[in-house]
């Protein structure tokens, strides 16, 4: 009974987080902010769901598989989002910022931040993002 209650709580919370993440995918304004809601689904949502099922089945082969699945989603999901962010920055997609705090960072954070800013600017895509994206890809592909 208690097990059912706990697993139900976990699964309900997981479903709630999946819903919040879905709302974020629709409503947030640009790629980099949408990444956060995707990460929400892949870490908190999947984590809580799998946790609930693990509590439900206890120590068994199914539980072991669930732990494996949780490990895969929990660690590989953020890897993929990070790779998407890196590729987007390399292709010249600018994050939507009110003011760019990266250039006016404090001294302690200045070193890695300036390196990342340099990295963004190297592709020097001047045209609008939508136009530039297929172009840069096809240019590379043509060589």
């Amino acid at each position: 009974m208690l097990v059912d209650l706990i697993s139900g709580l976990f699964i309900g919370a997981g479903g709630l987080f999946v819903l919040i993440g879905a709302l974020g995918i629709i409503r947030l304004p640009d790629v980099f902010s949408r990444m956060q809601s995707v990460s929400l689904i892949e870490t908190v949502g999947a984590g809580l769901l799998c946790m609930g099922f693990i509590v439900k089945v206890g120590f068994s082969l199914v539980g072991l598989k669930l732990i494996l699945l949780l490990t895969i989603i929990f660690f590989l999901g953020p890897v993929v989002t990070h790779a998407v962010a890196q590729a987007a920055l390399a292709a010249g997609v600018k994050p939507l910022l009110v003011h760019d705090r990266r250039s006016a960072a404090t001294k302690a954070d200045a070193q890695p931040v300036s390196a990342s800013v340099d990295k963004i600017k190297t592709p020097n895509v001047k045209a609008s993002v939508k136009k530039a994206l297929p172009k840069s890809g096809s240019k590379k592909a043509d060589i």
Binding site: V31, R34, T81, V84, V93, V129, P134
Partner: peptide
Amino acid sequence: NIFDRMLAAN
């Protein structure tokens, strides 16, 4: 843009 689609597909 393409990264939105990539993220959504994932």
